[in-house]
Design a binder for these strands. Structure first.
Lengths: 205, 205
DNA sequence: TAGATTGTTAATCGATTAACAATC
DNA sequence: TAGATTGTTAATCGATTAACAATC
């Protein structure tokens, strides 16, 4: 597939463009130029046009981009013109916060199932969704056909959780444990570690 | 300052190296080569050696790196050989999860003050720390000399929160609102948006 | 010493930027 | 049309990689 060789930084920026376009639609704006969008995001207009050109021609010379149209195109490109069910592993404080997070809505994702191995947590409901025994994970993930997961367990349990998820057919994992995890080729993984982000800033202070 | 022109990707990776070294110290390992560390992190050994060479010579030919020593050096470089107090803005679900987060410990940060504008939340205690009225933020941040903040308020309140923080002397902001925020030069900002990270993965599915 | 691994250089690779013809 | 902005090319810039002398 030719789109495979789109540079990774381009894909990362597309998600930022999409987020901005969603916001602009809410604001009622209909048209935007690469210049104006770039100013809002701190990205050059040339960069934006170049990024978009990997996928097609979405603008109109002399005018700019029709916001709704570009939004739909980016949703399609990023494959969030649908809703992905997420398997959440870990029903602690962080898991709770993730389930209550409002930001998934209309952005392509929803929490489909919650798992934990703590008998104290199994059976409880979070936002109407029952916490399931981790031992049921392979069965449930397969039955529901889930491809996306979030790992919100302690660092020392994270690799095991990831291994189980991968074995159950999960293809994309967002990991909140502050540790580098290994996955086989063909499985996507990203880590959210607030401390590394903070350390990244203190360097510059 | 010459260290200003160290490439940003290098600093990002240093935080990953530091995280791995902390883990290795816990495991009891004492020495590691760039090759072994690279294998663990999915980074080439040449990359690691090059990254470190921006700051000095930390290894020993034929042997590798003394893990504790390299850890201390990275802590110093990233300025986390101290503890930074964090001003947390927003005491909702996410704010709660951040206060209860165990990952800050021994990594250079602690929550120093919590602010919210909701009268329902002001005065309550989270982990022994009282939620303060947001109107007190400038005074408290200045008095405590805080330089680092975390924004955990809704998207529509985030820019205002950031403006107040910057006016109060904050120099580094970790933003959890799913929106691009503007800060003046000299202030660092990073955004944690799980949905953009997820969208980044679904592209490749 | 012999073997191993660093620190660093030079070459390669890839991403960003500037400029402008095309065109709405 | 005249003005504005796109899409794209070529040039620039920057980061990664490979290789190896230095050396523990």
């Amino acid at each position: 597939m030719s789109s495979r060789d789109v540079p990774a930084p381009v894909i990362r920026r597309l998600t930022i463009y999409l987020r901005a376009l969603m916001f602009l639609v809410d604001e009622g704006q209909e048209i935007i130029s690469s210049e104006e969008l770039g100013n809002k995001l701190g990205i050059s207009s040339a960069q934006i046009r170049k990024d978009l050109s990997y996928f097609g021609e979405f603008g109109k010379q002399g005018t700019g981009y029709e916001i709704r149209h570009l939004r739909e195109q980016l949703k399609r490109i990023l494959k969030v013109d649908r809703e992905w069910g997420i398997a959440l592993v870990g029903a602690g404080d962080l898991g709770h916060a993730i389930v209550h997070y409002e930001g998934f809505k209309n952005r392509g994702f929803y929490i489909a199932a919650i798992f934990d191995k703590d008998p104290q947590k199994i059976g409880r409901k979070i936002r109407g969704l029952e916490v399931l025994d981790s031992r049921l994970l392979p069965k449930v993930v397969k039955e529901m056909g889930l491809k996306v997961a979030i790992v919100a367990v302690p660092a020392n349990e994270a690799q095991k959780a990831v291994d189980t998820l991968v074995a159950s057919g999960i293809k994309a994992i967002l990991n909140y444990a502050p540790i580098t995890l290994n996955v086989p080729a063909g499985v996507q993984i990203r880590c959210i570690d607030p401390v590394t982000r903070l350390q990244n800033m203190t360097y510059y202070l």
